[in-house]
């Protein structure tokens, strides 16, 4: 109860964590930082989900998310040549897009709290922030690690919002299976890129 209150009262920290995580995954080139961003994101997800769910159940989100990060980390992504972003045009564009997401979230968050009774404003902010960042990320990435990360980000954002209204263990389990499945699929695809590029 005390822990739950702590999460509730300091939920803003989780939103900041999610913002940093989203920014890391979106803006940074290094795969290590992106996977670290993913881990950070799932920490934030755990924090916000714990407001509505028992701590043990909410922890599943974090554990599964970290496992997903680990799977992607050992998938061979480290063996692929790094992608370079053009400075400063691409960076400015991405930073502006990220800013746009934040502005949009500030407008939409009250609507979401209205839609989901009992939804903490931080949960609405966190969920929408991840969904928005994920969508923009998906919009500018067509393949590779970025696509998988963006899908996971969108899904994590949804999971925060869905946790407000659904507390079923089976759903939590199935969503965990989906998260892990996505990570495994992503790892498989990344492995294939490495294999074919090496063969070529």
């Amino acid at each position: 109860m005390i822990v739950s209150n702590f999460f509730d009262q300091n939920a803003i920290i989780a939103v900041i964590l999610l913002g940093i995580a989203g920014g890391l995954m979106f803006l940074v080139n290094s795969w290590r930082w992106r996977v670290a961003g993913l881990a950070l994101m799932y920490l934030g997800v755990f924090w916000l989900v714990a407001i509505s769910w028992p701590l043990g159940l909410a922890a599943i989100k974090m554990v599964v998310g970290w496992m997903a990060g680990a799977i992607l980390g050992v998938s061979g992504v480290n063996l692929l040549p790094p992608t370079r972003r053009r400075w400063p045009t691409e960076w400015i564009f991405l930073a502006l897009a990220f800013l746009l997401v934040i502005v949009a979230v500030s407008r939409l968050a009250p609507v979401i709290t209205d839609w989901f009774p009992g939804c903490h404003p931080a949960q609405a902010w966190g969920g929408l922030l991840l969904i928005g960042t994920g969508l923009i990320h998906l919009g500018v990435a067509s393949r590779g690690l970025r696509t998988i990360l963006s899908i996971l980000t969108i899904l994590a954002g949804f999971e925060i919002l869905y946790a407000v209204v659904e507390t079923s263990t089976l759903v939590a389990g199935l969503l965990a299976v989906v998260t892990l499945g996505l990570a495994l699929t992503g790892a498989y695809l990344l492995g294939n890129i490495y294999e074919t590029e090496n063969a070529g």
Partner: peptide, 14 residues
């Protein structure tokens, strides 16, 4: 295994 994934498969997944 061994096939290069293109945009289609990622978008299908997404």
């Amino acid at each position: 295994p061994g096939s290069q994934p293109g945009r289609g498969i990622y978008r299908f997944l997404a």
